[in-house]
Structures are given as structure tokens and as C-alpha cells.
């Protein structure tokens, strides 16, 4: 076997894992395979997958972003409040996305210009953004968003028979895949994670690349916030708590190295699907929610251990 095809095989490992999981779950409970349930899984996955796509960019540069859940909550709350106040839904969505971009860019600036480790910087902004959400909402959910058809469609509608959030996720996937694999920016992302010093000495503005990946992540967190707010027709101040951990888990399950420089976004999609199928499957089988956490943790651990074996 050539080096290339061997590499390909190991890259597709997570996909085999997902298929195996689907087979196990559908044998234990055939109703898993009903269209309604599959759409349900995909709709749930779309929110975490979109966040995990952003996380992939950040982790590829060797960073981490713990603030995604708080960014989701803050942008969601502001969007809900604007809608409740009667603002045009498209304008609202635009404002929320730009706000997400800015919140992300702030992370990037603190990390690059302030030279703060990504873990610490985003741990701080995670707390700040969550606190701002609580201040803004006074700790209460925001509802009464009105019945804008276009906004409702975003989280609950169907497009050509598919749930709109799933379509959004797929479109986001293809755009981000293209950016990572086919553009100079994507190449720079890998270079910064692979060897920052060599990248800098090759004339790459590494600070700019890093700020951009955090901004992209903030933007995608805001996109998830819009889907979630539309689905629930309200914004919760505690929305998105521990989403950062699910996103990191999806990235890692997809085979992307936490050291940066190695990985791909297709793996993250599979990783997010594995977590989604696992959650849904355990519900269908009737595993208690306490045990579900244990199983999820074990799956993540096994995936990483197998990855270690492979690379050793």
C-alpha cells in the first residue's frame, strides 16, 4: 500500500467508527433509522457541528477556544431581544453574525497582541461573555420574538425536504472545507499550527491568521445561536453551556491533533455525528442520562487511544 492510501485509510477511521455505531444502534432499536429520527439527529448535530467547524480552524493553528458557548448565548440573547423589539429579521441576523465575528476577533487579538495563552484568554472571555449575557438578560429567558416567517424557517423549516439547519450545516461544511483545503488562507492555517516560527520566517503574518480563525469561530458560534434561537423561539441565558467541550470532542474524534497542524474538517463532521448518534441512540435504547455521560467519555478516550496507537 502506498503512503498516500495508508494515510487515507487512517483518516477514514472515524467514518468506520460512525458506521459501526449506526449499525449497533439500529440493531438495538430499528426505529433509529426512521426518517423522522434521522432528521432529528441531524438537526441536533447541526448546531454543535457548526461550532465544531470553527473549533477545527482554531485547533489546527494549535489554539483552543473555550468561549464558543458563551458567544452563542450572548449573540443569541441580543438577536432575540432585537427581534422582540421589532427589528427586521435579516438585519437582526446580520448584526448577530457580525457581533459573533467581533467577539471571536477579540479572542484573537488578546491571544496574539497580548500574548496570552489561548486556553487562558478564552477561559476569561468565556466568563466575561457569559456574564454579559446574564447582565443583558437579567438572568431570564427572552421570548416573544414575534412570528417572522423567515426567522422561524431558519431553525424549524425545510428546504427541498431537508431541515434548514441541516442544509445550513452542509453549506457551511463545503465552504469551510474549500477554504481549508483549496485557499492560501487554509494553507496558512495549517502552517501556523505545524511550525509557527517557520511560517513567520516564510513571510506569513501569523497574528493575522490567528485573529482570523478566532473571528471565524465567533461567527460560526453566532450562526449556531441563530439556529438555536429560532428552534426554541426564545433565548436562554444559560444556552450553550459546555458546548465548547462537545466541539473539542468532535474535533478530536475526527482525528485532528490538539498540537495543531494536522487534521481535517471532514473528520470534525464525522466526530460531531458520532456524538449526535451516540446521544440519540442511548436515548432510544433507554440508557439513563447519567450513564450516557460515562459512555460518551469512554468513547472519546477510546478514539484518542486508537489514534495514538496508529501514529506510534
Amino acid at each position: 500500500m502506498s503512503i498516500k492510501s495508508k494515510e487515507m485509510l487512517s483518516k477514514l477511521g472515524p467514518l468506520f467508527g460512525l458506521l459501526l455505531l449506526i449499525i449497533i444502534v439500529s440493531v438495538l432499536n430499528p426505529s433509529f433509522l426512521s426518517i423522522a429520527n434521522i432528521f432529528n439527529v441531524l438537526r441536533q448535530v447541526s448546531i454543535s457541528a457548526i461550532i465544531a467547524f470553527g473549533m477545527t480552524f482554531v485547533i489546527l493553528t494549535g489554539g483552543i477556544d473555550l468561549s464558543v458557548g458563551s458567544t452563542l448565548a450572548l449573540t443569541g440573547a441580543i438577536a432575540a431581544s432585537l427581534l422582540a423589539g421589532g427589528l427586521d429579521p435579516f438585519l437582526t441576523m446580520g448584526i448577530a453574525l457580525i457581533l459573533g465575528l467581533i467577539l471571536g476577533a477579540i479572542n484573537g487579538v488578546v491571544i496574539t497582541k497580548g500574548k496570552v495563552a489561548p486556553f487562558i484568554a478564552t477561559l476569561a472571555t468565556m466568563t466575561i461573555y457569559r456574564g454579559l449575557t446574564l447582565v443583558f438578560t437579567e438572568g431570564r429567558p427572552i421570548s416573544g420574538l414575534g412570528d417572522h416567517y423567515s426567522f422561524q424557517l431558519f431553525g424549524k423549516g425545510y428546504f427541498l425536504g431537508f431541515p434548514v439547519p441541516v442544509v445550513t450545516m452542509v453549506i457551511a461544511f463545503f465552504i469551510l472545507y474549500f477554504i481549508l483545503q483549496k485557499t492560501t488562507f487554509g494553507r496558512r492555517v495549517y502552517a501556523v499550527g505545524g511550525n509557527e516560527e517557520a511560517a513567520k520566517l516564510s513571510g506569513i503574518n501569523t497574528d493575522r491568521v490567528k485573529i482570523a480563525v478566532y473571528a471565524i469561530t465567533g461567527f460560526l458560534a453566532a450562526l449556531s445561536a441563530l439556529i438555536l434561537t429560532s428552534r426554541l423561539n426564545s433565548a436562554q441565558p444559560t444556552a450553550g453551556e459546555s458546548y465548547e467541550l462537545d466541539a473539542i470532542a468532535a474535533v478530536v474524534l475526527g482525528g485532528t491533533s490538539l498540537n495543531g497542524g494536522k487534521g481535517w474538517i471532514f473528520g470534525t463532521l464525522i466526530g460531531a455525528l458520532i456524538i449526535g448518534v451516540l446521544n440519540n441512540g442511548m436515548n432510544l435504547i433507554g440508557v439513563s442520562s447519567f450513564w450516557q455521560q460515562v459512555v460518551k467519555g469512554i468513547v472519546i478516550l477510546l478514539a484518542v487511544l486508537m489514534d495514538r496507537k496508529k501514529s506510534a
Partner: peptide, 18 residues
């Protein structure tokens, strides 16, 4: 400082010439 070791020859040479 010179190479991104996980990159291919191609990607390394292209790095300063994107």
C-alpha cells in the same frame, strides 16, 4: 525554523510562494 515537518515537500516549497 525552516520547515513545517508535517508538510510535504510541495507544501514547504510553496509556503513562501503562496
Amino acid at each position: 525554523q525552516g520547515l513545517v515537518l508535517d508538510f510535504s515537500i510541495k507544501e514547504n516549497i510553496a509556503l513562501a510562494n503562496l
